[in-house]
Simulated assay, not measured.
Amino acid sequence: MKDVAERANVSVSTVSYVLNDSGPVAQDRRNRVLDAIRLLDYSPNESARSLKRRSASTIAMVVPDLTNQFFAMVTEGVQRAASAVNVLVVLVVPDAIELPEENYAKLLRSQRVDGVIYLSGTGSMPESIYDLAKSGPVVLVDEQIPGRDLPAIVCDSRRGAREVATHVLDQGHRRIAVIGGPPALWTAQQRLAGYREAIAGAGIDPDSVPVHAGDYRQESGRAAATQILSGPAGERPTALLCANDLMAIGAIDCLRNNGLRVPEDMSVVGFDDLPISALLTPRLTSVRQPAHDMGFRAANVLFNLLEGNDVDTSGTLPAIVKIRESVGPPCR
């Protein structure tokens, strides 16, 4: 900035006014500053500027993996919010870099990111990530972690699960199985609780409904469906409640490989409403989470915290049931 000021024959504060649009500058002086910036190929130090104005220049986004479209859509929302305020997003995908959580926490600290948006794949948070919250804010998205008092932007998974299970029960299904998510994850617990509430409301003992734990990946849905089909044909469920779309897709693939039709022989529902879900045959009944909006809101909460603004540090977005052709009455 001193070099720019000398070249333009103005004060350093005048250069700052021009760069930040933070004070009055006569047009001829503004033009001289802009010419000097171009001639010197000057680029402001965003890290230094962010320290001065208590804002962000770089944030980190931690996601379990990007093979799940839902995670990618959340990340896109974060990126959209960040680009609107010229903030760089450092993407950390633990599965891709093959680093333990403790190690990538050290990596983030060495990069001196201003804050972190964290989407857990385990339902827990290592101490080293939590320690980052002592030097800069950490905002959770699509998750709440017991014992961690951190801002969180989530979807009303429990209500969405209850409503989609109610739709299945209204079709006449009474033999139901659940393919749930990782038991330690808050999202999986919320969805299972919603299913159980709907089942109990239909006069069925929820403890009588088998729950097969998956990991939100397609292969685990296929494996759970294989186990379900291993029982006697007359005792098989007529409907599967899957805690995300990828596991539902894996389950449908298993059913087809075993000569079963959806929904004629078995109805299937998912959760997340990924873009591919409306392209399947039959189209998948699912619960839509506003993934992009969740990422966008989490980023804006982070930015407001960095700037010291008063902001609601929690938020629950609505889930919307999308009824399609993968659910029908049970076969008689």
Rank of each mutant, 00 (worst) to 15 (best):
N9Y: 11
I252E: 01
E219L: 11
L107T: 10
R261G: 06
L140P: 02
V154S: 08
R162E: 15
G221I: 02
Y130T: 07
E325A: 14
R236G: 09
A251Y: 00
G214P: 00
G121E: 05
S314I: 04
R283T: 15
R261T: 12
P94I: 03
E219F: 09
V92F: 09
Y42I: 13
R159V: 12
A105P: 07
Q111E: 13
S286I: 03
P64G: 02
A56W: 09
H212M: 06
E235V: 04
P329G: 11
G315P: 01
Y216V: 06
A319W: 05
N309D: 05
V63N: 12
D95S: 14
I179W: 13
H212E: 11
S230I: 02
A193Y: 10
P182T: 09
H212P: 00
A96N: 11
D156W: 11
R49P: 10
E197N: 02
G270R: 06
P275N: 02
T285H: 10
Q189D: 04
R49H: 00
I176V: 15
A298N: 03
G295I: 00
P151V: 09
L34K: 01
T58E: 14
V301E: 00
H173M: 09
P100R: 08
G231S: 15
S120C: 14
D3E: 15
R7W: 08
F70L: 04
L99W: 00
V10S: 09
L260P: 03
Y42M: 08
D253H: 13
R159N: 13
L107G: 02
V85D: 12
I145H: 01
S208K: 05
L246T: 05
A84F: 04
G23F: 06
G250I: 06
S57P: 13
I249M: 14
V74S: 07
V87R: 07
G147H: 08
Q171K: 12
A165K: 01
D114K: 04
L66G: 07
S110V: 05
D156Q: 09
E101R: 03
R175C: 02
L241F: 01
Y118C: 01
V139F: 01
R297M: 07
T281V: 06
S208G: 11
R297P: 02
T285Q: 07
N31D: 13
G136R: 10
V209T: 12
E6P: 00
A184Y: 12
I145C: 02
P275F: 09
I199V: 14
P182H: 10
S267Q: 07
L39Y: 06
V154C: 13
L284S: 03
D3F: 01
V287I: 04
G270M: 09
H212W: 14
A82S: 12
L19T: 03
A200Q: 12
I276M: 13
V262T: 11
L302T: 07
